[in-house]
Design a protein around this nucleic acid. Structure first.
Lengths: 255, 255
DNA sequence: AGCGCGAGGTTTACGACGTAAGCCTTCCGT
DNA sequence: ACGGAAGGCTTACGTCGTAAACCTCGCGCT
């Protein structure tokens, strides 16, 4: 068994060219060919098998095509993965509840943005870590807000609400590291217990915890999933912190 | 070029068996054989080439040995990587400035712990992300504090300082996600600019930023490395937050 | 009608990977 | 002296990413 990186590969036979939905019709296009389809399929595969089990051959197979055909549309696997995270980011940006510019104050603006990112992370637990692990293209594109559009929204939004340059930059850094830490951990916890079958399997029993009375005592508390509540609380505290940053960095600036 | 995942592989010739330091001598051992040596070498290699370029053959080569010989001491690559992150965690735990139990209050205790973790992260920028990306063995082993010893220290320390069970659990979750987010981002930024040569290469010039005036305006600020200061500030705010958690969850508990 | 030609797919092939299986050597206890 | 195991080496298999060459249509020309 050469490569059991994440989960059993489990290769089902191909289907492909299944439902070619019709409906749209700009002048002269046939059936929806590819490239976006490739990225979508890659995202799906990553979500099913984990990033380590995405394979060009497997991906081709899922699209009813040989692996090499993909290279007509994608320069290589790395770039494909980059496109996958781009797709994820776009998904976030298309969220209706996320504003591209503040409407009811910056706190509401940032709340919506944070929740939008969280929604995407939770909807794509296996892919989300990719957003963190690909090398950033520029120092100001910090995961998980890895796109100029997001950063522009963030920066423009806060500036328009009276944040100084320094305040905006600090807030941006605080916001991104908060999101990254919380969501990576939440998603990792979520991803762990969706294993193949496992049932409930209390994980208790077993060995160790005898030597670790403190941990043993808190075992149940620590295993509980309070992610949603704590995200909310931590986010509120973060906004307070950012409010403090705002006033602390308020200095003489032109508009 | 099959696998340019991270950086150019660049395979130098082997040396191995170079300096076999003598000095210790328990009853009957020859030259320091292996297993720990393997893990150390793996850690070094990851640090030099990035995790994606660690290869059993390359690792063997670095130790002056064929790849297959490693399997005498290590069951497989996954387990090797697990051992590497364990080694990292032990390194943190051996830090003299980190206390295993509070001496001057829990704030000092957590400060020292946070700085200890940060020191290790910064000393091993390429390896640190491994600590985050390996699947956790239990829900209460949250990166980057992935060892029962750490968690026991944390939990025991806070409990002994009067934290309730719930308060301890909340503080633990807040602490870990703070560390993970901050340090991953700091380390990613650091890892980015140690590329092969690149010189300074202002990254400015170039394309894009014309359409993103807000980002362009803040470009220099956002590229600045304020990681150290902001870690300190954020950590202090986190401790305040934890103090609030402490009093908020103070309820009737036996000692 | 013939014909080239390019878009989009396939085949084949290479080198690197993780690792199973078996072989060879060296050295120890008896 | 010798058996055996400890520790390394060689060979081999299946899989990966991808370069290169090759088919095979259907279209627009003349």
């Amino acid at each position: 068994m050469p490569n059991p990186t994440d989960e059993p590969p489990a290769d089902p036979p191909p289907d492909a060219d299944a439902a070619v939905v019709e409906g749209d019709s700009p002048p002269s296009e046939r059936v929806p060919l590819e490239r976006d389809r490739i990225v979508d399929a890659a995202l799906d595969l990553v979500e099913q098998l984990g990033p380590g089990n995405l394979t060009m051959r497997r991906l081709g197979h899922a699209l009813g095509v040989e692996a090499m055909s993909l290279y007509r549309y994608v320069p290589g696997k790395e770039e494909l993965l980059d496109s996958v995270v781009d797709r994820l980011i776009e998904t976030m940006y298309a969220d209706d509840d996320v504003l591209s510019t503040p409407r009811d104050g910056w706190q509401d603006f940032l709340q919506r943005m944070a929740h939008g990112v969280r929604r995407v992370a939770i909807a794509h637990p296996k892919s989300f870590p990719l957003v963190a692990s690909r090398p950033p293209e520029a120092p100001w594109l910090r995961p998980p807000l890895r796109s100029l559009d997001w950063v522009e929204s963030f920066v423009g939004g806060l500036r328009s609400e009276g944040f100084s340059r320094e305040g905006t930059a600090s807030a941006y850094r605080a916001f991104t590291s908060f999101l990254l830490g919380s969501l990576l951990l939440e998603v990792a916890a979520r991803g762990a217990d969706v294993g193949p079958l496992d049932v409930v399997e209390d994980t208790t029993a077993e060995s160790s915890l005898a030597d670790y009375p403190g941990v043993d005592d808190l075992r149940h508390l620590l295993a509980q999933d309070r992610a949603a509540d704590e995200f909310e609380l931590a986010l509120e505290d973060l906004l307070d912190r950012i409010a403090r940053i705002k006033v602390d960095t308020q200095d003489a600036e032109e508009s």
